[in-house]
């Protein structure tokens, strides 16, 4: 997976094109273009991105979301008659979905619709967790790392106190308080307890960057703190932030499924991938598909997001990839 992502030799000049001495044409690329290029050449990350897009499109177009209808005619709430013991019909007769591609549960609900609904809800929660974590972590880490002094002491003590409680424990308590108020609040609440890691990373980056000459130069010409933070330091930390945000989404999916397993996540009649596994875990021997499908979707989502994160890390910071001499 960690293929050598270095492109052909590039110059760091900003002139559009120039002809080198040996007559070879050298194309100048901006930092952003170089990162994008490395990312697009990362095979595992591309595979992950493709899988994730496929799952997202499948989940949201099939049964529709909110007011939008989908192409799949069965609802995840409607029970029905159990056909053929509820066995999956996917690919049983050639390359066709059949009546119930993922099978049915014991009361005849269409399991494809259930898994799609679970995927939708898990994705929504995970993305909200990712966004909230990123915003809070960046804000707190940046404030602590830039202003130092008392601001830093207070913010970092809060971070330490939060880290001394295992995330799952904290998340379970927060979910018990906010979980019944709906999926958006659940996501926000979980984001509020998972930002600590990113805050520490961002703080470290800020502490190192604020001592650099270019920050001093900016300050010397009278640039405001806000402008220094947003225009001079933040763009230099964007790599760390994007990578951590991606990994936070993967962790968010798993956190939500774990909480659903403990009965604290999304509440019935709505479902998430975690609550599906929990509900049907005893069916593993009699109706194994009820156990396998949601699990496969969780692993597929988490794995592809993790691969995307890895690709982004390699794209932003290719040092790790260099082959040893």
């Amino acid at each position: 997976m960690s293929t050598n992502t270095e492109g052909p030799p590039v110059t760091r000049d900003h002139e559009p094109t120039q002809v080198a001495d040996d007559g070879m044409e050298v194309i100048a690329r901006t930092q952003g273009q170089m990162v994008l290029r490395r990312f697009l050449r990362h095979r595992a990350a591309m595979l992950g991105l493709g899988t994730l897009l496929f799952i997202v499109v499948l989940a949201y177009t099939s049964i529709g979301y909110g007011p939008f209808g989908g192409w799949w005619d069965k609802s995840f709430l409607r029970t029905g008659t159990v056909l053929d013991g509820g066995r999956p019909t996917l690919f049983t007769e050639g390359f066709a979905l059949g009546e119930h591609p993922f099978g049915q549960d014991n009361v005849g609900k269409d399991y494809f619709a259930l898994v799609m609904r679970g995927t939708q809800q898990s994705l929504v929660v995970a993305f909200i967790i990712g966004i909230v974590t990123t915003l809070l972590g960046t804000l707190i880490g940046a404030a602590a790392g830039f202003f130092r002094g008392r601001t830093e002491a207070v913010l970092m003590r809060i971070t330490d106190a939060m880290i001394s409680v295992p995330t799952l424990i904290f998340a379970a308590i927060v979910a018990a308080v906010f979980g019944r108020t709906g999926i958006v609040f659940l996501g926000i609440a979980l984001g509020v307890v998972t930002w600590t890691g990113l805050a520490r990373l961002v703080r470290g980056e800020f502490m190192a960057l604020r001592e650099k000459e270019f920050v001093e130069a900016a300050r010397a010409i009278g640039t405001s703190n806000w402008r220094i933070i947003t225009k001079h330091i933040l763009p230099n930390t964007v790599g760390v932030i994007i990578v951590t945000a991606t990994l936070a989404i993967a962790a968010g999916i798993l956190l939500e499924t774990a909480l659903s397993f403990l009965g604290l996540g999304i509440q019935p009649p709505d479902v998430s991938l975690g609550s599906l596994i929990t509900e049907y875990q005893t069916a593993m021997v009699s109706r194994p598909w009820l156990f396998w499908w949601p699990g496969i979707f969780i692993v597929a989502i988490a794995l592809s997001v993790n691969f995307i994160g890895d690709g982004l890390r390699d794209a932003f910071d290719p040092r790790q990839n260099r082959v040893r001499d």
Partner: peptide, 11 residues
């Protein structure tokens, strides 16, 4: 490692 990292514990 990536696979283990993406597995739900209870599953």
């Amino acid at each position: 490692a990536f696979l283990f990292y993406s597995l739900p514990v209870f599953w």
